[in-house]
Design a protein around this nucleic acid. Structure first.
Lengths: 152, 152
DNA sequence: CCTTGACCTTCCCACGGTGGGAAGGTCCAT
DNA sequence: ATGGACCTTCCCACCGTGGGAAGGTCAAGG
């Protein structure tokens, strides 16, 4: 009769975090080592399940393991300043916005190109034209000395 | 004597694709094996450089290796139907939009939460409240008595 | 009691892309 | 000939996730 503890598989079902991921989070130090039964099985009580829910939710919001670890630490710190939490959130928001902007740029470029492509059986295609014509400027000029190349 | 061919490093500088990535693309079959000099150095001519530019540009547009391989195949097929290219582009656009929507959702949620967080010295924080989904605070270290664990 | 099957444990491998670095060979200018 | 910038291959790491092997455990049914 399980006291009020469950196994990883059950915890996974309850929280939506896969058993594999639960073990992985534990190994990475994101979660404290789960208590073990006499035979070595991990056992999860209500507190652990709550933590797993927290992790799941944070993951859904795009936080990476490191940020989640910080959030967990703040969560369990009754004297935390909410400013610390807010700072983490803001960092994540900035990162999300950065990535969104990048993806938006790609999507818009592609949409423009696709709109100009008649998309029939003929080979003429502005998409391929763009990909081949795009003289992408080398991002950084490199500090290394440029010398003539040549070899036998 | 060099024909007008360059080494990987030079090709990397010219195209913005790192030497490491050029070798990796070749190993993955995205690029045909580069011609080698007598001593085994990869040599890149104008055609190869053009291909690398193409790859770079496609990568910038968010295509993954597989899609780039298909695009390269179509690029070198003079009888391609532009519809095939357009289909690939549309797939990529859909994927980009999907990811953008997901990230947007996260960003908006976080922004709302952050806006509600006063961000001062006090511990009250709607962000943590949301993450814990209205559940009670975490196990205070050493306070909560661990339930009996036993396989039963 | 013993078998069966679901579950657990750890360990290794893979993915996409990218970078770091080691060990060793090559090229070229001085 | 020396130095160092470059090349080669090979292995390892990251993130987050899954697959699977080899072996132990638990609960239920015959």
């Amino acid at each position: 009769m399980s006291e009020d503890t469950v196994t990883v598989g059950e915890a996974a079902r309850l929280t939506g975090v896969s058993a594999k991921m639960i073990r992985w989070y534990e190994a990475r130090g994101l979660l404290p080592p789960a208590p073990r039964s006499a035979s070595g099985y991990r056992r999860y009580g209500e507190a652990e399940i709550r933590t797993l829910h927290f992790v799941r939710r944070a993951r859904d919001l795009g936080f990476d393991v490191e940020a989640i670890a910080e959030l967990l630490a703040l969560w369990s710190d009754r004297d935390r300043p909410s400013a610390a939490v807010k700072a983490i959130a803001r960092t994540r928001i900035a990162e999300l916005r950065r990535r969104i902007t990048a993806l938006e740029g790609m999507a818009r470029s592609l949409e423009r190109l696709a709109a100009d492509c008649c998309g029939d059986e003929r080979p003429d295609c502005p998409i391929l034209d763009d990909l081949s014509a795009g003289e992408a400027p080398p991002p950084s000029p490199g500090k290394t000395v440029r010398r003539r190349i040549g070899m036998g």
